[in-house]
Amino acid sequence: MKISNKQKKKLTPAQQQYQEFAKQREPKRPVLKNCLKAFFVGGLICTLGQALQTIFITYFGFNKVTAGNPTSAVLIMLSVLLTGLGVYDHIAQWAGAGTAIPVTGFANTMASAAIEHRSEGYVLGVGGNMFKLSGPVITYGVFSAFVVSLVKIIIMKLGGM
């Protein structure tokens, strides 16, 4: 139950009492178990990424910097394929943040929204809704990159680093 303190103040005593009562009877999210699963699956995906990178460097003539692109591309394609086949959401229910945090999770947000809104047409449906879930990630990703670079510039101008 997500209730901010501000909202809690607005609740009547009867509501507060009931929420306490209900809370004791609600099964909790198994946080520790979820963390371990996420660590395991997330690590597994990253290991796969590492293996792909090594393959691209060893057999396809990429170097450490340029191998990043084809590695992400393969992971994204795998994620999109599993999303399309209807498997990814089942893995994610088990793995939680483990499948959400790597690049595969980002690919899943876009592919799932695109598939879902195909019935509303390619322009307003797929085009308009593809970034529905990934939009916030992009918005705040760009914004935080901006803030971080601003901080870096200020520190450099002040003679640091």
Partner: peptide
Amino acid sequence: EKQFRYPTEYGAQKPPT
């Protein structure tokens, strides 16, 4: 799901409630 929550194929972990 489409209207109230997330796309059906989106990998979000649901709580036990």
